[in-house]
Design a protein around this nucleic acid. Structure first.
Length: 150
DNA sequence: GCCAACGTTGGC
DNA sequence: GCCAACGTTGGC
């Protein structure tokens, strides 16, 4: 089972909201590198749910993949903020997955704390200039983060 | 194929 | 709100 990290703006979807919903579609990814990681995900993979562009950026909890990648319907929806004008039914380059809530951390693990961990130096999240929103997490990185969770 | 201009991300 | 860094677009 592989591990991942995915970013979401809490205004769009927060870990608390996912806990209410139980399950949600993870869509709107419009970067090819991130999309390719989405497509590498398997049923049962778990990921860190990261809150970005908010007062307290950091890892907020854990969620799980419940459906592997499929065409992202928001790309075809002209009313969606994620509408991709060049995409069509027969040629939709964008992918989505379905996820379910696993765990909300008692406290968000702040980005500043993550940056201090030598075990996380290789994680794209903490690298200067990186904007990747979907990234792999090694088993070692996974346990290093969990040790910071209360 | 180059590269300037532009739009987006996302921390601070 | 600012701005650094990145990705994409489009003229040439």
């Amino acid at each position: 089972m592989a591990h991942w990290l995915m970013k979401s703006e809490p205004d769009e979807l927060s870990i608390e909201r996912l806990a209410q919903l139980k399950t949600a579609r993870w869509d709107g990814v419009r970067n090819y590198q991130a999309r390719n990681f989405l497509r590498s995900m398997a049923l049962g993979d778990t990921f860190f749910f990261y809150h970005s562009s908010c007062p307290e950026p950091g890892i907020a909890g854990v969620a799980r993949i419940t459906a592997a990648a499929y065409p992202d319907p928001t790309a075809l929806d002209p009313h969606s903020p994620y509408h991709a004008p060049k995409a069509c039914e027969t040629n939709n380059p964008w992918s989505a997955v379905t996820v379910e809530h696993v765990r909300t951390f008692a406290k968000v693990i702040p980005l500043a704390l993550l940056k201090q961990q030598s075990a996380l130096e290789e994680l794209a999240l903490v690298q200067k200039g990186s904007r990747l929103s979907v990234m792999p997490v090694t088993p070692e990185q996974w346990s290093a983060v969990l040790q910071l969770a209360h």
